[in-house]
Every structure is written in C-alpha cells, then in structure tokens.
C-alpha cells in the first residue's frame, strides 16, 4: 500500500517547514502591499487599448497573444511540441480503456459534435470576444479525451505520421507568416493592417489544430502503436493483454 497512502513526515521537520513558510508568506505580503501602495497604476492597459485599432482584432487579449507578442505564442507552441516529443520518446502509449457501454457511447455521440462545434465558435469569436485558439484547442482535445475514455485507444487522432504533421502545422504556418512579413520588408510577424485580421485567423486555425493534437497526445501519454492503424477499438482491446504480459 506504499503508493495509495503515504507515511507522514517527521513532526519536527514539518513544524520547521510550516514556520518558515508562514514567515515567507508574511514577507511576500509585506513586500507586495508596500509596493502596491506606491505603484504607478494602470500598467500597459492604455497602450494596449490605443494600439487595438491597428491590431486587426478587437479582443485585447487576442491582440496581445497574436499580434503584439506573437513571437511568445509561437515559442509557446514550440514548448508544447517539445513536451509532446518528450512524452513520445518515453515509450508507447498505454492500451487504453475497455469499450464503453451504450450509455457512454450515446453521450459521446452527443457531446463530441457539440464540443467540435463550440470549439469552432470559440475560434471564430476570439477576434472580438473571450475565446481564441487555446480555448478552442482545449475543447477539441476534450473531445479526444472523451473518445479515449470511451474505448478508442488513440483518442480519435489519425495515424502517427498525420499526427506529426498536425503537431507542427500551427508552428509551421506561424513561422511562414513571419517569414512572409520579413520578405515583404516588415518586421517578423509585423502584419500589414489590411490583412492582419485574416492572417491572425489563419494562424489561429492551424494553432487550434496543433494545440488539440498536442494536448490529446499528451493525454494518451505515449507514442501511438505503429501498426493496427485500421484496427477497430474492439480488436485493440483484445490485443491489449499481450502488451501487458
């Protein structure tokens, strides 16, 4: 039972940690409150609002993510990709769950299309209201998680080479747009005003696919099995005990 309930730590060490952490919390609060009393205030709000008409979108958060600080978002997609490569390099995925019963399958048949639909809505609405590529990608990934819980071992993802293409699609389109703006004589990812909205939508669409693929692959938790690309989930389940043995 070592893993389910663990031993309690030593009492003296626990007490010391608690005392030190209370001191740390007091120090942090003191520093923050004395600083907040003298802080200048509004930060970058005014600047972000002033530049909003030139960004191509009207939602300030999307403007920051995909226009002002687009390079950060590009690098963040690379962080996601790196994490997924790390997960894949650690071995094959677990065989997955057993085939779901009729109730769960019926639920999934309703919920998965709804998730895809609301993902598309969030992607589109992200230009002017709360939403955007990350939320849309998360909803698509949730659809994948539901499929995996319902017995599909690869969580509705395509085969491995298509997964690799999907995983780099967002980063590739992002970098290509950046290179195109460089070639056009502007800065990296410095969009021309007339095209900014459409370029952001293009980048966001592919970024959504990439984020959904990477998050679902992270949930599957390993490299997909090389063969059995056309196997039904039921066949997978029957073969699963071999891998365990």
């Amino acid at each position: 039972m070592r893993n389910s309930l663990e031993p309690k730590p030593q009492r003296s060490a626990a007490l010391l940690v608690v005392v030190l952490l209370i001191l740390l919390a007091g120090l942090l609060q003191w520093v923050y409150f004395t600083h907040a009393a003298t802080a200048p205030g509004a930060g970058l709000t005014a600047l972000a609002q002033a530049e909003l008409p030139r960004s191509g979108v009207t939602n300030p958060v999307t403007a920051v993510l995909l226009n002002y600080r687009a390079l950060d978002t590009l690098l963040e997609l690379s962080v996601l990709l790196t994490a997924m490569l790390g997960i894949w390099s650690l071995g094959p995925a677990t065989p997955g769950y057993q085939q779901a019963g009729a109730v769960f399958a019926g639920l999934a048949a309703w919920v998965v299309p709804l998730l895809i639909l609301s993902g598309g809505y969030l992607l589109w609405i992200g230009a002017k209201a709360p939403g955007g590529a990350f939320q849309a990608g998360a909803l698509l990934a949730a659809a994948g998680v539901i499929q995996r819980l319902g017995g599909d071992p690869r969580a509705s993802l395509p085969n491995e080479s298509a997964q690799r293409w999907l995983a780099i699609a967002g980063i590739g389109i992002f970098a290509l747009v950046g290179l195109a703006t460089l070639v056009a004589g502007r800065g990296f990812l410095d969009y021309p005003l007339a095209w900014a909205g459409w370029l952001i939508l293009l980048i966001e669409t592919f970024a959504t696919l990439t984020i959904a693929t990477l998050l679902t692959a992270a949930y599957v938790g390993g490299q997909p099995p090389p063969s059995q690309t056309t196997a039904t989930p039921g066949m997978h389940r029957m073969q699963a005990p071999d891998r365990k043995a």
């Binding site: 970058l44 709000t45 984020i211 992270a218």
Partner: peptide, 24 residues
C-alpha cells in the same frame, strides 16, 4: 476600467505550459 490584457495573455500561455509540463 478595462483590465490589463498583457497579464491575461501571460496567464493564458502559462496555463497551457503548466498542463503540458504536468503531462510530461
């Protein structure tokens, strides 16, 4: 006033990175 969007974008990025780091 409207909230500062820059920390919001930072947090949005941070949430995704935190989840992928957890998965790894």
């Amino acid at each position: 006033e409207p909230a500062d969007p820059v920390p919001h974008a930072l947090v949005l990025t941070g949430i995704v990175v935190a989840v992928s780091a957890t998965a790894l």
